[in-house]
């Protein structure tokens, strides 16, 4: 792999942990598709997962689990939790789950702010919207690949799709990503005039060629222009 160096790397560098991630490959073109729909995404980073597991231990009385973690945080907040036990809302957890399930998923995310107990109950007992992940697509004349970032904070990612040029023959790769939707990738191989468009499912590794579209193509004169597709 060639190393192009600095100019291409900083195309997208929202967070420091991203730089490492973006440094592999030698992106002549970097397409980073942020698959952000409304949800909390990557939020559930490593630190928070830890807390949730902590909450898991004592589920019989969730106020207790909250207070035990509070106690380690600071002595004053331990008093605060004691007050919750005495005068606050003390619904049976099953009933609280029942109530929370009646709320819309988005609003349910918002009320995680109410207190630790509610957050734990929401995280453990109510269905969550699958957090969207970041998809990064790299392409050069030698290879093209798509990566999914599973853990943005920790920089963990996995390759979900890739092609590379055969080193023996002098073929080149010219694949662009048209778009992504519901976990599917829509890719366009530009080697043929007008491009060959295919939808790829990274999980099942199935590929579906899109029938040739009736696009106008004017022989060799279209050099340097590219047909535009969208997918979503």
């Amino acid at each position: 792999m060639m190393n192009i160096g600095a100019p291409s790397a900083p195309v997208v560098s929202p967070a420091p942990s991203w730089r490492n991630f973006l440094n592999f490959g030698n992106p002549f073109r970097i397409f980073v598709s942020l698959a952000l729909k409304f949800t909390s995404a990557f939020i559930s980073g490593p630190s928070k997962t830890g807390e949730i597991t902590q909450g898991n231990k004592g589920r019989a009385n969730c106020y207790e689990s909250a207070s035990s973690s509070m106690a380690t945080a600071s002595p004053t907040s331990a008093e605060a939790t004691a007050a919750v036990n005495n005068e606050g809302l003390n619904l049976p957890t099953d009933a609280l789950v029942d109530i929370l399930l009646r709320l819309s998923p988005i609003y349910r995310r918002l009320v995680r702010l109410v207190c630790r107990h509610w957050r734990d109950v929401i995280d453990e007992r109510t269905p969550q919207i699958q957090p969207p992940k970041v998809l990064a697509f790299f392409s050069s004349s030698k290879s093209a690949s798509a990566y999914v970032v599973d853990d943005l904070a920790g920089g963990k990612c996995r390759k979900v799709w890739g092609v590379s040029a055969d080193p023996d023959t002098k073929t080149s790769v010219d694949v662009t990503m048209v778009g992504t939707c519901n976990g599917l990738l829509c890719l366009c191989d530009n080697k043929k005039p007008g491009g060959t468009v295919a939808v790829f499912n990274p999980v099942t590794r199935e590929k579906l060629r899109i029938p040739k579209l009736p696009v106008s193509y004017r022989g060799g004169y279209s050099y340097g222009t590219r047909d535009t597709y969208t997918f979503g």
Binding site: L36, F38, T39, S40, A41, F42, I43, K48, A66, S67, M70, A73, S74, S77, A80, T81, A83, V84, E87, G88, L89, I106, R109, L110, R112, L113, V114, C115, R116, H117, W118, R119
Partner: peptide, 21 residues
Amino acid sequence: NIKNDYTKEELEEIRQELAWA
């Protein structure tokens, strides 16, 4: 009548998640 038992930092963290949401 629920006591807020989050620390400021935790609250901020969850708020940031919600900003995405």
